[in-house]
């Protein structure tokens, strides 16, 4: 039986694995980026646009889901108004940074074009992430359920009847 300390140790190990993989990918990209020719992708602008748009999209989605799941006993004022205002604040911030000239390469510099290109990029990346989860855990589930286990002896036991028997 695992104790709470074991669970913390296990999750710490898993986090280290994930962080190590992220660093590995980053270093590999950086290495090839430095060695070979590459287009100027404006990674800083893309990062900033991605942060703000992800913030808007997640808050917007949470706002709509909050509305969809609301009922008469739910206290959703803070939740609904908060997510709505957070989305609006994100949109305003996005407009401000575009006006300030922090735009993406390869797209017209107006707010809508910049918004649309980043939103599409994020949607494509979201699709890829979903597929990665589906593929990895689909294969893992298929493999895990393939193992034959001995029959559970508890299944052979009779359960006790709790019904009151008439005399």
């Amino acid at each position: 039986m695992t104790s709470e300390g074991d669970a913390v140790r296990d999750w710490r190990a898993l986090s280290i694995v994930v962080i190590a993989l992220v660093v590995l990918i980053f270093v590999a990209n950086l290495h090839l980026e430095v060695r070979g020719e590459v287009e100027d992708v404006g990674i800083f602008s893309r990062f900033i646009h991605s942060v703000i748009l992800s913030f808007i999209m997640v808050n917007g989605a949470l706002f709509l889901i909050t509305l969809a799941l609301s009922h008469k006993h739910a206290k959703i004022v803070e939740q609904a108004l908060g997510t709505l205002f957070a989305s609006v604040a994100g949109a305003l911030l996005f407009g401000i940074i575009i006006d300030a000239g922090l735009t993406l390469n390869g797209a017209p510099s107006d707010v809508w074009s910049q918004f649309a290109v980043t939103a599409i990029r994020l949607m494509v990346a979201d699709l890829a992430i979903l597929l990665a989860f589906g593929i990895s855990f689909g294969v893992l589930l298929t493999l895990v359920t393939g193992r034959k286990n001995p029959a559970d002896p508890l299944l052979d036991l009779n359960s006790t009847s709790f019904e009151v028997e008439e005399e």
């Binding site: 990209n29 893309r46 997640v58 803070e78």
Partner: peptide
């Protein structure tokens, strides 16, 4: 290389932006 380099910026931004949005949501709740 250009696509992969740009994707790193997008994915990092999604992690930060999505994480911030979830933290904001938890705060509102």
């Amino acid at each position: 290389r250009s696509a992969s380099w740009g994707v790193l910026g997008d994915l990092a931004g999604m992690l930060v932006g999505g994480g911030l949005a979830l933290a904001t949501f938890v705060t509102f709740v």
